[in-house]
């Protein structure tokens, strides 16, 4: 529909993340998209960083020391939370697409999101206290 053709890709993408006057299911879509982008970024960053392993013990242990600073640990918690949200939401979408429970998707989403939040909190507490 030609009404949107004049806008830039960035302003078009911004529309995805506008939850005004939308339902809870849109929160699922927004979370899925944000975590997808975040996890993809982390995946490739992680692959590059693990190259330190090939550099031998000193390089890798030095790298680990940096990564254990609070800011990186916080990042690690974000990755784990994103993984839970994206993974559990993904299970819902897969089930719906194979004809299972699409009519109960809202309730499924709320249950899975609660599980994701609880699991993320458990991991966060463990990581910060160990």
């Amino acid at each position: 529909m030609t009404g949107v053709s004049k806008t830039s890709p960035l302003s078009r993408a911004a529309k995805w993340f506008d939850p005004r006057a939308r339902t809870i299911s849109t929160i699922g879509f927004i979370l899925n998209r944000i975590t997808a982008l975040g996890l993809s970024f982390y995946l490739f960053l992680h692959l590059i960083m693990l190259g330190q392993l090939a550099q031998g013990p000193q390089a890798y242990d030095g790298f680990l020391a940096t990564v254990h600073s609070p800011i990186f640990v916080f990042g690690e918690v974000l990755v784990i939370a994103a993984g839970f949200i994206h993974g559990l939401n993904g299970i819902r979408i897969a089930l719906n697409s194979f004809g299972v429970g699409a009519r109960y998707q809202k309730a499924t989403f709320l249950v899975l999101l609660s599980i994701a939040v609880i699991c993320s909190l458990i991991f966060a507490v463990r990581i910060f206290t160990v």
Partner: peptide, 15 residues
């Protein structure tokens, strides 16, 4: 991408 807004706004219960 499963935002299900279509079902939410449909005035005719097409789902």
């Amino acid at each position: 991408h499963s935002a299900f807004e279509c079902t939410a706004v449909c005035p005719s219960f097409v789902e």
